[in-house]
Each structure stands twice: as C-alpha cells, then as structure tokens.
C-alpha cells in the first residue's frame, strides 16, 4: 500500500513532464530530446529562488512556468522553425529535429554543468511526515502531487473546453485541415511548443521539492517522459497521465522490493517491452 501511494505520488510529477513532451511532439511535430534540460533548468531555478530569496517553490511556479514558455517558444521560433520550413516531408522533419534537439541537449547540459558543476543538489521544503491511509509520507511529495494534478486538470480543461485548446488539438490531428478553418498552424505550433516547455518546467519545479537533482540528469528524464508518452499513446493526454502513474508505481516497486539501483534498468526494460508489443500505446487503437 505504501509502495502504491508513493508510486502514484511520484507518477503525478512524471505525468506533467510527459505532458510537456507529448504536447511538443503531438502538435509541433518536434520530438524534443532536450525536453529534460528544461526540467533540470527548472529544478535549479526553483532551488535558486528558494535558497536565495526564500520564495516558496509553489509561488516559484508562477515565475518559472512563464520562463519555460518563453524559452521553449524562442527555441522553436529561432532554431526549429527553419527546420520545419525546409522539411519536404514529415520523415525529414523528424530526423532533422531529433538531431537538432539531441545537440541542444548537450549544449544545455554543458551550460548547466558550467554553472552548477556535477554535484547533487536538494533543499528542504515541507520535509515533514504526513500520515495518510495508514502510512507516513513526506508532505512535499503530497503537495507536489496535488499541484501536478491541478496543473494537469487545468491543461485538460484548456485543451478540451476552450476554442483555443481545441485548435491546438486540431493542429495535432490534421495540420492541413487546420489551415482551412483559419488556424495559423505555425503560430499554434510555436505556442504548443512553449506551453509544453512550461508544463515540463512545472514538473521540474515540483520534482525539485522532493528529489535530489544534478546538472546531467536531463537525458534520463527525457527518456522517462518518452516512455510515458509512447506507453500512453502519442498526443493522448489521458493516456499519458495513466502511463505516468504506472511508471511511478513500477519504479517504486522495483526500488523498494528489489534494489534501488535497478530502477533505471526496469524503466528501460518496460520501454523495450512496450516498443515490442504495444508500439501504438496501451490505450491507442490504430496508430496515428
């Protein structure tokens, strides 16, 4: 029971990180391998805010999420849109954008190494036990889960209940048809890429409240997000949330019952199994 709850609490934060990636890939058609760097930058930003000015990370979200939006929007407009423009096919764009964002990954990782070194960081925020369902959990994990759930719900309401959100989904479904209803596909793609960055940044801020982070863990989190996105079905918000909870529970299970060192191996094992047997996602019918 404790394992299940801990896993679900972890999965809540994973869900946000993965939602950011799936928005970027589903709408802007960019498989952003540097997505994890946004997360790490958000961890460090939250740490800086907390340790230098004492700003509570939950308030920090209000500063860091807009920064994530602007930074990712700028990356899209400045670096990725030229690739989109010159691509003659979807396949060409995928190859180009994977290579470009792979390069960005190393660039950002190097910059953060330069700034913070390779050491592990953490800070004490709501690090008090909280009794819940017969178990005892860190209050910061519960708070992070609650905040993640609220942000995911807000994203869901935006995507499904507003016209702008529906337009974002329309671009994901059929960019050419979207142009026929007066949607500026380039603008929506940039917006969705920025929004995805903001959501991932929120995930990073929440993660930093209970997790020890360092400058080089971005790629690992990109992989986790990728696994969740593929497991949930690309572009599927509800699928991503459920897949994130599954991954969180599985990691916690492996870490507490077998060995914490095997967590990553289990994660990749799950990835291989999904690619072999359900490449269209656990809940997806036909692909695409």
């Amino acid at each position: 029971m404790t394992i299940l709850v801990t896993g679900i609490l972890l999965g809540g934060t994973y869900a946000l990180i993965a939602l950011g990636l799936t928005l970027q890939y589903g709408v802007a058609r960019i498989m952003n391998l540097s997505n994890g760097e946004t997360l790490v930058a958000a961890c460090f930003s939250a740490w800086l805010l907390f340790t230098t000015t004492g700003i509570n990370p939950l308030w920090g979200l209000l500063i860091i999420a807009p920064l994530g939006f602007v930074a990712n929007g700028a990356i899209y407009l400045g670096l990725l849109r030229p690739l989109v423009r010159r691509a003659t096919s979807q396949g060409m764009l995928e190859v180009d954008s994977i290579l470009a964002t792979f390069g960005l990954l190393f660039l950002f990782e190097g910059l953060m190494h330069l700034g913070f070194g390779g050491a592990y960081f953490n800070y004490q925020f709501l690090a008090v036990p909280f009794k819940f369902l017969g178990g005892s959990y860190a209050l910061n994990r519960i708070t992070a889960f609650g905040a993640a759930a609220a942000i995911a719900l807000a994203l869901y309401l935006f995507l499904y209940k507003t016209r702008m959100g529906t337009a974002v989904r329309a671009v994901a479904v059929d960019p050419e048809a979207a142009r026929l209803v007066a949607i500026d596909v380039g603008l929506i793609a940039a917006f969705a890429f920025g929004l995805g960055g903001a959501i991932t940044a929120c995930g990073g801020v929440l993660l930093s409240t209970f997790y020890t982070f360092n400058a080089s863990m971005g790629a690992v989190f990109t992989m986790k997000a990728l696994i969740i996105v593929i497991m949930g079905g690309v572009g599927d918000v509800r699928g991503a949330v459920i897949a994130a909870l599954i991954l969180g529970v599985m990691e916690t299970l492996v870490a507490s019952l077998i060995d914490p060192g095997l967590t990553l191996a289990a994660t990749y094992g799950l990835f291989v199994l999904i690619l072999l047997f359900r490449p269209q996602g656990l809940f997806g019918g036909a692909a695409g």
């Binding site: 479904v173 048809a177 142009r179």
Partner: peptide, 29 residues
Amino acid sequence: HRRVEAGLALVPEGRGIFGKLSVAENLHL
C-alpha cells in the same frame, strides 16, 4: 488561414474534416 478570414471556405478533396474530433468540435472550429 488568412484566405478564410478574407471570406473563402474550401471543402477539399477527401473533405478535410478532423476525423478524431467530434462533430460539435469540428463545427466549433
């Protein structure tokens, strides 16, 4: 997209509707 704003609406070959969205969402868009 700006031609639509100018007053032109096209129903192309193959219809170009959003297959994964509902009828209401298609009309709303």
